[in-house]
Amino acid sequence: MPILILEDGCDSADGLNADLSQHSMACDIFASGRLGEVALSAAPYDAVILDLNLAETDGMDVLSHWRNRGINTPVLILTARDALPDRLAGLNAGADDYLCKPFALDEVIARLHALIRRSKGISHAEISFGQLNINLNDRSASLHGQPLNLTQREWLLLQLLITHPQRVFSRAQIEDKLYNWEQEVESNAIEVHIHHLRKKIGATFIRPRRGLGYQLGEAP
C-alpha cells in the first residue's frame, strides 16, 4: 500500500515511515511542496499524508494544485494548524480528512484505511472471495477458515488484486504498489511473489494476461 508523506519535520516523517511500514504501508517522503506536487502526478499512491507547513510551497497550495488537475487520491492533512478556519479551509480545498498534531498513530492508520476503502468503493473492511476471507484493517487472511501466513509483499499483492477484481496490472504497476522509490527490485521479484501467493491460495487465483500483466483469477 504506497503512501506519499509530505512532511517538513524530519523526525515526524521518519517516525511515521517507521510506524506505517509495520502496517504494510510503503512510504515515500518529501519535505518540499514542489517535489510533492510532481510525485503524486508520477506515481500511483493509495493515499497522501500532507503537512501544511512545507518548504517552498504551502501544503494548501499543493492540495489545490492536485485537485485543480483532477487528481483525486485521498488526502489526510496532518498538521499543527488546529484553528477552526484552518480545518475548514483544508476540507473545503479538497482534503478528505484533517487531523491535528499531536496525534495517535492508531488513529492515523484507521483514518488512512477508511479513506482508501472509500476511494475503492469498499464500505466494509472484510472481503470474501470464495473460501478466502480478508480483513483489510488488521491485514489478515484465511482460507477455508485457516489463517494464511503471508509476507508483507504477498499481503500487498493480495490486497491489490482483491480490491480491483476486474483490473489487469502490468508488472511495473505491481512494482509501484509493492516497493517505494528507494528500494531495489530484482528482475524476477514480482513473479516470485505471484508464485508464492498461488502456492498458498491456489494455482488459478492469479490469472496471467499475455503481454498485459496479471489480474485476479478464480475464487478458491
Rank of each mutant, 00 (worst) to 15 (best):
I3K: 00
D8F: 03
C10D: 11
D11N: 11
N17E: 12
N17W: 10
A18I: 14
A18C: 07
D19H: 11
M25Y: 15
M25N: 13
C27G: 13
I29M: 07
S32N: 14
G33F: 00
V38E: 13
A39N: 03
L40V: 14
D46S: 14
A47M: 11
V48M: 00
I49P: 00
L50G: 02
L50P: 03
L50D: 04
L50T: 01
L52R: 01
T57L: 06
D58Y: 06
D61G: 15
S64Q: 13
H65V: 03
N68H: 10
N68P: 03
I71W: 02
I77W: 00
L78H: 02
T79R: 00
T79A: 00
T79E: 00
T79F: 00
T79I: 00
P85I: 07
D86L: 01
L91A: 03
A93V: 00
A93M: 01
A93S: 06
D97Q: 06
Y98D: 10
L99R: 07
C100I: 14
P102T: 02
A104H: 12
E107F: 12
V108P: 06
V108L: 07
A110K: 10
A110F: 09
L112A: 10
H113D: 14
R117K: 11
R118Y: 03
G121K: 01
I122C: 05
H124Q: 14
E126K: 15
I127M: 05
I127N: 03
S128F: 04
S128Q: 14
F129V: 10
N135W: 09
L136N: 02
D138R: 07
A141S: 13
A141M: 11
S142L: 08
P147Q: 04
L148G: 07
T151G: 14
Q152L: 11
E154F: 08
L156R: 15
L158P: 06
Q159S: 13
I162F: 04
T163N: 05
H164C: 12
R167G: 08
F169K: 02
R171S: 13
D176C: 12
D176R: 15
L178S: 05
L178R: 07
L178K: 09
N180T: 12
E182Y: 14
E186H: 13
H193F: 13
H193D: 09
L197N: 13
K199Q: 12
K199G: 05
T204W: 07
R207H: 12
P208G: 12
G213M: 06
G213T: 04
G213C: 07
L216M: 06
E218D: 12
E218T: 10
E218S: 11
